[in-house]
Design a binder for these strands. Sequence first.
DNA 1: CCCATAGTTCGGGATCTCGGAACTTACGGA
DNA 2: TCCGTAAGTTCCGAGATCCCGAACTATGGG
Lengths: 115, 115
Amino acid sequence: MRPLFHPAIEDVAPQAILHALSDPARAAIFARITQAGCVNACSAVSALGDRVIPKSSLSSHIKVLREAGLIRCERNGVEMRNHSRCAEVEARFPGLLAAILNAYAGSDAPGAGTP
Amino acid sequence: MRPLFHPAIEDVAPQAILHALSDPARAAIFARITQAGCVNACSAVSALGDRVIPKSSLSSHIKVLREAGLIRCERNGVEMRNHSRCAEVEARFPGLLAAILNAYAGSDAPGAGTP
DNA sequence: CCCATAGTTCGGGATCTCGGAACTTACGGA
DNA sequence: TCCGTAAGTTCCGAGATCCCGAACTATGGG
C-alpha cells in the first residue's frame, strides 16, 4: 500500500484542524501521538482512558486527523506508524496546537481520564 | 425575554469552542464581533465578505457561539447586542482564541474575503 | 391599531457520524 | 507452502446533526 494521502502543509486549513480536534476522542488520540514522541501504533491508542474505541471508529478518527494535516501515517509491516506533524503545523499556525492541547489539559486532561 | 442561557466560564469546554470555530462562517462572525469592540448587531454581521447568510442560519450560528461561551447576547430593543467574551476565555484558556483567529487570518482572512 | 423590523422556531432534505460485520494485508509457525 | 492470527480498512444501516426557506413572535414607531 502506497503512502496514503497527506495534504501539503500549505494546504492545511484551520477549520480542518479545529474540526479534527473538536472531538475529545480525536484530541486525545492526537495528544497521545504527539506526547509519545511522534510515533505510535494505532492499536496502542485504542485504550484511551477507560473508553474503548471500536476499530472502525478509530480508523475514521485517524483518517480525519491525517486528512486535516495533523499526523502522518505510514505502514510498518502489519502496524501503522503515526507521526505527529506538530512541527509543521506549528510553523504554519504558531501557537495553535499548543493552545489547544493546553486547553484540553487544563480542562479535563483528555489523554488521562478523570477519576 | 429573559436573559438567554450563557454558560459560566468554568463550564466552557474546549471542544465546544473548537467546534464553534471550526466553521469558517462562525469564525468570521466571532472575529468580527471581537474586532468590532465587543459590540455588534446581529444583522450587521450578516454581510460577511461576499457571502449572504440566511437569517435562520445566522441565528443558529449565534446560538452555537453563545452556548459555546464565546459571546454574550442581550436584547437592546429590537436588536441584539453581541459582546465577545474573549477576555474571560483568554483567562481560562490562554492563547487559544488569539491562535485560532490568527490561524484564520493567516490562511485566508475569513472576515474580509479573498479578492 | 397597524405595520415594519429583528430575530427565533419549525420542518424536511442533505450530510455526517458511530459502530458492527466482513474483507484485505502482512507476518509467523508448522 | 499453507494456514492462522493480528492490524486496519471498507461497507452499510441507524441515528444525529446541519442547512435554509417559511412561518411565527416580539418590540417599537406612526
